[in-house]
């Protein structure tokens, strides 16, 4: 069954406390090349088939439910590569 992947990230201009905490841990472990971390979400949505209509519906869901536009951006809605 095909899978649509939705990527959601906290808005770039907002503080991401989760990413900041991960970055702090990496710094403590000596990964000095890492200068920043942001943590987002990936949704894998299984659909019966991929049509323009289905993509439109998932895109709507991504914007209205999977993300909150006040604090997050939908980065992409795409079909997963075949595995």
């Amino acid at each position: 069954m095909p899978i649509l992947v939705v990527d959601v990230m906290p808005k770039a201009e907002l503080l991401d406390p989760q990413g900041k905490a991960v970055h702090g841990a990496l710094s403590r472990l000596g990964h000095t090349a890492v200068s920043g971390v942001r943590v987002g979400k990936r949704f894998e949505i299984t659909v019966d088939e991929v049509t323009d209509e289905v993509i439109a519906d998932v895109t709507t869901v991504a914007g209205e439910i999977l993300s909150n536009s006040v604090i997050e951006d939908v980065v992409s809605v795409r079909e997963a590569d075949a595995r």
Partner: peptide, 11 residues
């Protein structure tokens, strides 16, 4: 209501 709530600044 407007706005949103995110994880506390200090985590």
């Amino acid at each position: 209501l407007p706005g949103g709530l995110i994880r506390n600044e200090r985590g």
